[in-house]
Simulated assay, not measured.
Amino acid sequence: MTPDYRGLTWDHPRGHNALAEAARLTGAAGTGSIAWDTHSLEGFESRPIAEQCALYDLVVLDHPHVGEAVASDCIVPLEELFAADEIAALEADTVGPSLASYRFAGRHWALPLDAATQVMAYRSDWNEAPPTSWDAVIALSERAPVALSLAGPHAALSFQSVCGALGADPASPRDAFIDRDIARAAYAILARLTKDATRKAATLNPIAMLEAIASGTGPVLCPLIYGYVNYSTQGVIAYADAPSGPGGRIGSTLGGTGIAVSRRAQVTAPLLDHLRWLMSDAAQRTFIPRHDGQPSLRSAWTDPQVDAAANGFYSATRATIEAALVRPRHDHAIAFQTEASALLRAGLLDGSSADRVLDAVDLAYSRHHSHGAET
């Protein structure tokens, strides 16, 4: 039987299982069928969002894709699908900037189903209190294997987060990327942490890094990595808030994913009701966590039962996600993120000077971000 809708999500239990089970229940109830396909975590960057939206009715994306999607006019703003009071309620009820991250050009473009940000991850059998500042992380790296997450886009994301801890906001409207003094200081912190453990883990995406930490074959701690509740639930990884800068500000760059409705979709009331249910308090606090998902409603993040089932993941990292930074979302933001990450990763691994690398990053930003454009 041909499904009424086709959706595309990412091929991890956190990204797929809850959506697939919810779709099964919806189809069984006779209110429309949804078939969810998957692609790799890296698949978010491997195909233009317009191509994905030409093939699928529902597309799971992250917020840096929004500017590209708006420029391509391939997704429907939430304001055309839901009432203003529903959107306002989501703004108030989602943790951190989860919904705000999808606001661009005056409208919202995806429902924030999944909330995540960079946090600190370490082996659950490690018997020390995790460091709380970047100075403490550097001190720990002198006596234990501490690795940065640098693979794929994560060198740029780690850099932006350290800049955030030092006072910058990479998503604020600007025609230069980050103040050079702050950028130099952030680069210096990352350079001091680019030791053997970081070099050995330089090709590991967050899932592979967490697997390496859990198995004992990798570092004992990663100070900035996207939190996956699944590893905490299994008891193999413990999490803590991301490190803070000298002023006590936590630096972390928001991740998570949202569900966008493509222009090709034939939107019906049952489809909208299904999306409403996925974002409901009941689904977010019960159904989604029970099916390997990572909810976005604050009521789920503060629910003692949800937290206990996740071995304290939510309480251990909530301060970080509430303070998380939003990434640049302009058209071509993904291309900039990819290029900047490659430049930063190569510079850190090669021991290049800060200004040489940062000059190249600023040049990339000027190519990919039009003068005066919204960030």
Rank of each mutant, 00 (worst) to 15 (best):
337 Q>P: 04
123 R>P: 01
359 D>P: 09
158 S>M: 14
358 L>S: 05
97 P>W: 11
144 A>S: 15
167 G>P: 07
319 A>D: 00
306 V>D: 01
109 W>M: 07
270 P>A: 04
319 A>G: 00
198 T>I: 08
78 L>W: 14
55 L>W: 05
297 L>Y: 00
92 A>G: 15
321 I>S: 01
67 G>T: 13
145 P>Y: 10
372 G>Y: 06
42 E>K: 02
343 L>P: 01
260 A>S: 15
296 S>C: 09
167 G>D: 07
115 A>N: 01
262 S>N: 05
120 M>D: 00
143 R>Q: 10
309 A>E: 14
287 F>P: 12
5 Y>C: 07
238 A>G: 01
206 P>A: 04
59 V>S: 11
319 A>T: 01
228 Y>G: 03
129 A>Y: 02
310 A>M: 02
159 F>K: 06
37 D>H: 13
204 L>F: 13
373 A>H: 12
176 A>W: 03
199 R>E: 09
339 E>V: 13
7 G>D: 07
262 S>I: 04
102 Y>V: 04
38 T>R: 10
101 S>R: 15
185 A>P: 02
159 F>M: 08
330 H>R: 08
313 F>E: 00
342 A>I: 06
98 S>Y: 06
207 I>C: 02
5 Y>S: 07
227 G>P: 11
251 G>N: 06
330 H>N: 14
351 G>T: 05
192 R>P: 08
162 V>C: 06
37 D>N: 11
116 A>N: 15
295 P>R: 01
184 R>P: 04
175 D>E: 09
305 Q>L: 12
268 T>A: 03
245 G>T: 05
47 R>I: 12
18 A>T: 06
257 T>G: 15
125 D>V: 08
242 A>G: 02
294 Q>P: 02
310 A>V: 00
53 C>G: 08
29 A>F: 11
372 G>F: 03
227 G>W: 03
262 S>Y: 04
187 Y>P: 00
208 A>G: 03
235 G>Q: 04
177 F>R: 02
129 A>Q: 15
216 G>N: 10
203 T>H: 14
190 L>D: 06
354 A>D: 09
289 P>V: 02
270 P>F: 12
253 T>D: 13
12 H>K: 02
307 D>Q: 10
284 Q>N: 01
355 D>T: 13
261 V>G: 01
58 L>E: 00
14 R>M: 12
181 D>T: 14
269 A>Y: 03
216 G>Q: 09
281 D>L: 08
135 D>V: 04
233 T>W: 10
40 S>T: 14
166 L>V: 03
192 R>M: 11
189 I>R: 15
308 A>D: 13
350 D>W: 05
220 V>P: 02
355 D>C: 14
370 S>F: 03
85 D>R: 14
11 D>C: 06
278 L>Q: 02
223 P>H: 13
151 A>C: 07
139 A>G: 12
221 L>F: 11
249 R>Q: 14
110 A>H: 12
172 S>G: 03
6 R>W: 07
38 T>Q: 09
41 L>E: 08
256 G>A: 15
373 A>R: 12
53 C>D: 05
46 S>N: 12
298 R>I: 01
154 H>F: 15
28 A>Y: 08
22 A>M: 13
93 D>W: 10
